[in-house]
Write a protein that binds this DNA or RNA. Sequence first.
DNA 1: ATCCTTGCAAATGATTTGCAAGAGT
DNA 2: ACTCTTGCAAATCATTTGCAAGGAT
Lengths: 135, 135
Amino acid sequence: MRDYIGFLQGNNLKATFQRISILKSIDKHGHMNIDEIYDDVKEQNPTLSLATIYKNIILMQENNILVEVPIVNKKSKYEIRKSKHIHYICLNCASIEDYEISFDEQVSSLNLPHKEGFEVTDTQINLYGYCSKCH
Amino acid sequence: MRDYIGFLQGNNLKATFQRISILKSIDKHGHMNIDEIYDDVKEQNPTLSLATIYKNIILMQENNILVEVPIVNKKSKYEIRKSKHIHYICLNCASIEDYEISFDEQVSSLNLPHKEGFEVTDTQINLYGYCSKCH
DNA sequence: ATCCTTGCAAATGATTTGCAAGAGT
DNA sequence: ACTCTTGCAAATCATTTGCAAGGAT
């Protein structure tokens, strides 16, 4: 179990139960979109509002606690920032699995020509297909 | 200049000037979001409606003429389906440059372990950073 | 002539905002 | 105590839909 309170206070964000619930929910499930977070978190805290989730997702992205994972034809999901990895995304059930591979490994293995003047600072690699349950 | 009429008729879609304008606009600029297409296309056809753009973007995706490019924290862009490539996306000006590299090359160069039971059918590789104009 | 497509306006859905009350430090 | 955060309701923005008129084949 991660130190959610530390994540928050380290960024001068108060450790409210709403924020901790959101982080716990995302961490438990790996990758979630706004509605999934809302549904999950409401079970424990029925009064927690959607607006609070929106505000905090934005805030936590700005503070590098969360990362957005945009997905073709679906609403974006969010994950806790963690060691560099790529995503296997199921086209059927939209589940996401991670595979850890460092930034340097990703960039170098792609074997790209140095694109003149373009400075790469981050990568986003998604492999779409069908997970073991869906094919 | 591509054969937009052929793309459309090949999919049993009528070659209206609205559809041709949309395709020309996307092709000319490479990657565009809905609003950019609307603004661009309105210059030649002031009556062309936003609803028509939405309807056609969906239709052309279903017919594999267009491909969605989802982007962190921005509205998705769309491009003409063409040979396999990856994207260099500028975090400052959101411009996108293509680099051609085949599906097989992408998958094999990533040097992934065979993820049990996951069948990869498509890839999405975006390299974020700063383009030559923006750093 | 027929059927598909468009443009409009309305409906719906998603996200953001302002502000008074409440919670965290 | 002080300040930040929440929840609500309203506002705004994005997307979809129904339908009559117009356009493509």
